[in-house]
Design a protein around this nucleic acid. Structure first.
Ligand code: MN
Ligand code: MN
Ligand code: MN
Ligand code: MN
Lengths: 150, 150
DNA sequence: GCAGAATGTTAGCCTTGTCTAACTTTATGT
DNA sequence: ACATAAAGTTAGACAAGGCTAACATTCTGC
């Protein structure tokens, strides 16, 4: 994950017309990666729990149809996060595994934080699934500290 | 926000194959509304601060090009959140105003919470801009309580 | 060892969200 | 007032992410 360098780019006049646009730019960037993050995290989990990650199981866990999964997996393969062979289950590349690990860590920290705040586990899981993609490393550190200290 | 009811199922045979899919379903739902929420919140802010909301200013604040804004505004009009006339600035409908208010409230609570946790305002603003769409009412209540109590 | 079930892929449709290029309308300044 | 600048729209491209229908492959239970 690339973290911030929102400020003056060394290169040419890259600065946005409105300086406050930075936050939205960052959010759009995060949104572009959300789905890939959910996929690799889930694939890693399936491989760990079931020994393999099959499209039918990915689809069931995400609540989407299998062709949707198939198409998305093609994209992830194109992007180098997974490898796959026709009619076979899915594997993570080195890069995919690294991303999955990072995502799992974020997910865990956010989840533990919400629970330690007093949220019920079910709502915590739901909120964590969405929030995890929008939490900076700094915030994550504060969440972790809070959860540990409580 | 209007929902479609795609399935004519009379019987409540609605339970998903995998129960854990619920979290992802919810997140996808939230993702569908993110952009509209950012728009109406921003439009309300522009109207408040500048007296009117013009596409060029919306674009500058969001960091996207004007035609992107124009097309999205058409969608928001179609959905009943705004009204607009060609070459004129944008207005919120009653529904749009209600949504904007709700979004502003969430944004404020999340932002104040992050800052009260110890995050710097700039990062807090960025994270809040993304997180706000993925925070349940329950979590919001806990955030508000924490920020007030600290 | 095969028929039927389960799984997976492909094709094609739709919507959203982004862009650029070309055009139109409105605002501005002298 | 009118030429030019600024703002806005329209058209069209493209990718992502969802779906269904049709087809292909693999698994399984007899
Ligand atoms: Mn997630
Ligand atoms: Mn997750
Ligand atoms: Mn936002
Ligand atoms: Mn906001």
């Amino acid at each position: 994950m690339k973290e911030f360098d929102p400020a003056p780019h060394a290169t040419s006049d890259d600065r946005p017309p409105d300086l406050r646009a930075g936050a939205f730019q960052g959010v759009r960037e995060a949104r572009r990666n959300e789905l890939a993050e959910d996929y690799v995290e889930l694939i890693a989990e399936l491989i760990h729990d079931q020994g393999e990650a099959r499209p039918v199981d990915i689809a069931a866990r995400l609540g989407v149809k299998v062709p949707t999964v198939s198409k998305t997996l093609d994209r992830l393969a194109r992007e180098g996060l997974i490898t796959r062979a026709k009619y076979r289950s899915v594997f993570l590349t080195e890069e995919g595994r690294a991303l999955a690990k990072e995502c799992r860590r974020r997910h865990e920290i956010v989840l533990r934080f919400l629970i330690s705040l007093g949220l019920d586990p079910e709502t915590a899981e739901r909120d964590a699934e969405g929030m995890e993609h929008h939490v900076s490393e700094r915030t994550l550190a504060l969440f972790a500290a809070f959860a540990n200290r409580s």
